[in-house]
Design a protein around this nucleic acid. Structure first.
Lengths: 349, 349
DNA sequence: GCGTAGATTTGAATCGTTCTAATTTCGCCA
DNA sequence: TGGCGAAATTAGAACGATTCAAATCTACGC
């Protein structure tokens, strides 16, 4: 019969030490599996640990050892499946390495991001994985996190210059190449009037995707009309609302659109209905991200697979590597993306 | 010109104290905005804090004060939008209250849940919000978290008995009522042969939803055939796979199905195609959860809205209340759910 | 019985805060 | 000038672990 008391003070090393007549130091050695301690003492201590229901206080240990066992993860918005998958991947890898994930969401606002970083940094994470808000600036982020905590940037660049002494790692998507591939695919389907839909041009990821689109259009000798660039918040709702802008101008109406991401593409497909068009039949659409829903929508969405969960694991691996060797030169990884052709990118009819 | 050194040791209270000729205690008082300290001293200290780029070490403070500024959140799987929304709600409320969220996923495995809880508890969270894995048992969870950390259970009950001294709070969904409403709605649409599809009967939420379905069927005097109960893992893929079981028996084929949740419902809609049926036309389907995708699918999904983000906020509020008053009697809240009728629950044709 | 190498164990300092109790400073009045 | 209460400041012991140097304990050979 175990005598685990249902209520009372928290058990510390002292309690265990007292409970089996050894010193605190010995118990500490046992906890960390040191070979220094005698077999029989070890057994006695381990029994006592169990008996009293001891739980390790990692915060105290981290304080003394000046280490950390946590990593902060700051993303835009958990409800976005792209980030949810990313977060799942990060947590998976960090957890396996014995780290715990501190969560924070910026809601894509630089101001909230600053506040969240400020709060997280006080908990002393060993590092930070940050997917910056659209209008986030290097200088302000640096002020919030200081120069002692390594950072891995994901998905977007920061605005402004980062001082040379802050060598942060980067994990970016090959936005330009991806958007170029999508555009080339649509051109291959016979489309000539192709729009670039959604996102805001002040975000680096949007600019890169837009650049890829422009390159493909130019390379094919196709014109780009100005009303074929419609900006929107990268959400489904706002994209559906903005769809009309593609057809309101007096210029040539597009027959296809390269969208900033899947959320926007799904929103556009919805919005098309209200303008007498149907994606996959008389209008072609591509997305970006390949969220789970892309394969399931009607029509299913042609998009660029970014494997966000794998990216999450990768970001975590980069941070772990940096923690192992803080002096290593910082690096940038550009993750390839892959075109997944589905029903929404029908040939020009 | 600020002299924030780009690299070096971490700044502590001692550095600040030395830097402006006061004691460590005074600096501590300034930090916490105590009225005890003189205006001019305060100003001097604040200037020094800024100058040296001090960052508060909350772990050290928590150690001394025997408090915590974090809460552990353990869910099934972040990639499930229902849990992602829930997590977003939790984090939102906790963040506003100055707590940080420690993330953990169990992947719906009791074993992993145990390991994750064990790791999280060592970081000393003030409380735990747990959405148990399907086969999670009260005794094992208690052993992992101990009796010192308050717990809020969400969504599912634990297996086995919880000792009376562990008074944990609960936030559950009104599963029974919701499933009953869905079933009644289908009956109102003229359906007589209605299946209950997906989930595993050993999970409390599944049993409750199944009970609601049974009640409605009995109340309407309708028979329930045994092959109308098809179990599956609560994922889209497995549901699609399991769809065939509804039609393989020699008994009467159902014309409608109440599904365990939206993921399963979407999977079933997919699987129906392979058996020559189409949801919303010749087969009616209802889900549970009202994830964002439910409104967007084709056909859009009739389901029970659980407002997972609001539930997240609510769970966090419950935990915060418990932290404020650890002695308060523990409570169970059953959150109402609301039937949202869309296209998938067509009348019997 | 003694010295000693090796195996174990331990005392005390330390990490960066908070907090209590005590001390110092100051304004003001007799 | 001295005294006194209020205001401001501080010394030093915690919190729960780790760590290093030093102490103790064994066993063994001579």
């Amino acid at each position: 019969m175990e005598s685990q008391t249902p209520v009372g003070r928290k058990i510390t090393l002292n309690d265990i030490a007292a409970g089996c007549g050894v010193s605190r130091a010995t118990v500490s050695l046992v906890l960390r599996g040191s070979p220094l301690v005698n077999k029989v003492t070890r057994a006695r201590v381990e029994e006592e640990l169990r008996r009293q229901g001891y739980v390790y206080n990692r915060a105290a240990a981290n304080l003394r050892r000046r280490t950390s066992s946590s990593v902060a993860l700051v993303i835009n918005e958990l409800a976005n499946p792209f980030f949810a998958e990313f977060a799942a991947g990060v947590d998976e890898t960090l957890g396996a390495a014995g780290f715990v994930t501190l969560l924070g969401s910026s809601g894509d606002s630089a101001e909230r991001e600053h506040a969240v970083l400020g709060s997280l940094i006080e908990h002393g994470p060993g590092g930070i994985i940050l997917s910056p808000a659209e209008d986030s600036e290097a200088r302000k982020v640096l002020a919030a996190v200081g120069t002692h905590t390594p950072v891995v940037l994901f998905n977007r660049e920061l605005g402004g210059e980062l001082p040379e002494y802050a060598h942060w790692d980067r994990l970016m998507l090959d936005n330009e190449r991806g958007a170029r591939q999508a555009t080339e695919h649509l051109i291959g389907q016979g489309h000539r009037h192709i729009a670039f839909f959604g996102g805001h041009d002040h975000a680096s990821s949007t600019r890169e995707r837009h650049a890829g689109y422009t390159q493909a259009m130019h390379a094919a000798g196709l014109p780009v009309e100005s009303h074929w660039r419609v900006q929107s918040t990268p959400t489904r709702m706002d994209a559906a609302r903005a769809a009309g802008a593609l057809f309101e101008s007096s210029g040539t109406a597009p027959t296809a659109a390269v969208c900033y991401n899947d959320a926007v593409a799904l929103g556009l497909m919805l919005g098309l209905h209200q303008h007498g068009r149907q994606a996959g039949r008389d209008f072609a659409v591509t997305g970006f991200d390949d969220i789970a829903e892309a394969a399931m929508s009607m029509p299913s969405l042609t998009t660029l697979s970014t494997a966000p969960r794998a990216r999450g694991r990768q970001a975590a691996d980069m941070l772990l590597a940096r923690l192992r060797d803080p002096q290593a030169p910082s690096g940038t990884i550009i993750a390839p993306v892959e075109l997944v052709v589905r029903e929404s990118s029908n040939p020009l009819s």
